[in-house]
């Protein structure tokens, strides 16, 4: 089988779900001189399979696909935007082996990875409500960002409005409820690297401003989750001024909000994405 190696690559898995973000990534890759390789969700694990090697304590990893054997190194950038479970194998044992190989690839791939997945990555191993409960509030005294009040079991009869946590991983089985006292308007924060923007999700007379304390807490949250790209659904409580407290209601690792804004040709969102991607492409960071 032919080994592919001529210029650095940008490898995207599942980009078909985010066509507008993909177009920006393609344009930036072309500008930077990266060759784009796109792997659809349906091909990931069937037509394209990963491999991982460690020799002398040094990881190597790559992808086998129609193009041959593409080894990925620190000069390459890898972003798995979306993936489904590996295709079913002929036995449960082999299915587990395929899944373990995929996790190994995500964890050990020496490329510059955006939103690294794998079994050492908390955002991909922990239910989102538990991530919020575990990571917030940050221990620093000046923290303004909190999780909702969570309750497991039958909802308390305390006069508060309790909402069932949406289905995800294990909450399909558990009874997880949440409530927020006196919630303000719903907003979404986009954290891309160290840059944060805040967006309204309901009609508001004025575009929301991003308090510096909230920006600091959101970048802390993304860093503690190991996320480069994180979408946070949040509401404020109390007055919307510098003293406001904020509650994070949900975390998203897929750039769905970003896709919507880029599709609307929002110049702020577009600039934020371009700035982030340029910084990632220019970064020399070697994660493994």
């Amino acid at each position: 089988m032919q080994t592919v190696r001529c210029m650095p690559h940008l490898v995207l898995v599942g980009p078909e779900s985010f066509p507008f973000v993909r177009d920006v990534l393609r344009a930036e890759a072309q500008r930077t001189g990266l060759r784009v390789v796109e792997v659809s969700m349906s091909d990931w694990g069937t037509g394209v399979t990963p491999w991982v090697e460690v020799v002398g304590g040094r990881f190597r990893a790559g992808l086998l696909g129609p193009w041959g054997d593409l080894e990925l190194g620190p000069e390459d950038v890898f972003w798995c935007l979306a993936e489904g479970p590996p295709p079913r194998a002929e036995s449960d044992y082999l299915s587990s082996e395929h899944e373990a190989l995929r996790e190994a690839f995500h964890t050990c791939c020496p490329a510059r990875v955006i939103n690294r997945r794998g079994l050492l990555a908390p955002l991909w191993t922990t239910a989102m409500w538990r991530m919020l409960a575990q990571r917030l509030p940050s221990p620093e005294a000046d923290s303004v960002l909190a999780p909702p009040h969570f309750h497991l079991g039958a909802p308390p009869e305390d006069g508060q409005r309790w909402t069932r946590w949406p289905e995800e991983a294990e909450t399909r089985m558990g009874q997880v409820w949440w409530t927020v006292p006196e919630p303000g308007p719903l907003r979404q924060a986009l954290v891309l690297g160290s840059h944060v923007t805040l967006w309204p999700l309901e009609f508001e007379e004025e575009p929301p401003t991003l308090p510096s304390a909230l920006e600091r807490d959101l970048t802390r949250l993304a860093a503690s989750c190991g996320a480069d790209v994180l979408e946070v659904l949040l509401v404020s409580s109390g007055m919307l001024d510098a003293s406001a407290r904020w509650t994070a209601l949900q975390l998203g690792t897929s750039p769905e909000g970003l896709e919507r804004l880029v599709a609307q040709e929002d110049p702020v969102a577009l600039a934020q994405l371009e700035r982030f991607i340029r910084a990632r492409f220019a970064s020399k960071e070697d994660a493994r």
């Binding site: 899944e99 373990a100 996790e103 190994a104 964890t107 050990c108 079994l119």
Partner: peptide, 11 residues
Amino acid sequence: LSNGSKPCQYA
């Protein structure tokens, strides 16, 4: 969960 894939632990 890390035990679910040995190379993950290798890191």
